[in-house]
Design a protein around this nucleic acid. Structure first.
Lengths: 118, 118
DNA sequence: CCGACGTATCGATGGTTGTCAATATCGACT
DNA sequence: AGTCGATATTGACAACCATCGATACGTCGG
């Protein structure tokens, strides 16, 4: 855990006009490692469901208590997955009172999408 | 290993005009499982490098012998990763003589890209 | 101040997976 | 047939990861 990466430069690689980075030229070892880290965050069914539930919520925002029952996992496990998604830059956390709200980071998914195809 | 999925319907989910499936409505357990399987194939640095090398080759095609040295892994390991990518629908294999050529499946990456963002 | 509640962290555990060496398979060439 | 070269499969092992129960942390209401 905790191979971090920043939210705004999803994998340190930018798509140009021609082609997506993946198919333009061979990835370096470092680039591949970073992209893989990002993809790993999306390579889990629980996390994908969490993302989609958050996305479909009011204001693309949901609190942990609303997420536990839909995904059918324990509260610690849900908390863990949310942390992974946050660390990967897909979600951002804001605490209001006792509750923690998770919100989609605008453009984060789009950037990953752009890395794969033009 | 060997949780398969077909090439042409990347995750059994189709993007519509409005939103990508991921952000449109909550994914079902099955949909999430299938999408996760697809993403897992892309969540490894060696496989990403293999994909990018194949993509950057003549005719988006390369034989195994050309891939071993660039990624710096053993031949069996490379063969394994190529199989994973093929099973996931990203590559297709064609044997010519002693050599096995792997080629990008047109549109496969694009479909995954569409699943993540409009 | 104390109990109740929502959330995060910790420790343990079972399952998955990336890797390699060894071996099998298959095609080509003599 | 026999050998060699390219690729795939097998078996084993270490590292990683998803999950849970137990617990700690913070915040609100009495």
């Amino acid at each position: 855990m905790l191979t971090v990466l920043e939210a705004t430069d999803v994998a340190g690689v930018i798509a140009d006009a021609c082609c997506a980075p993946l198919v333009r030229e061979p990835l370096s070892a470092d680039e591949a490692e970073q992209l893989a880290t990002t993809m790993k965050a999306l390579a889990d069914p629980a996390r994908l469901r969490l993302l989609s539930i958050v996305a479909a919520s009011e204001g693309s925002e949901a609190c942990v208590c609303d997420l536990i029952e839909p995904v059918g996992l324990s509260q610690p496990t849900v908390s863990h997955h949310l942390k992974v998604l946050t660390t990967a830059g897909f979600l951002e956390r804001s605490k209001r009172g006792t509750w923690a709200y998770y919100k989609l980071v605008p453009g984060a998914l789009d950037r990953v999408s752009q890395l794969l195809a033009p």
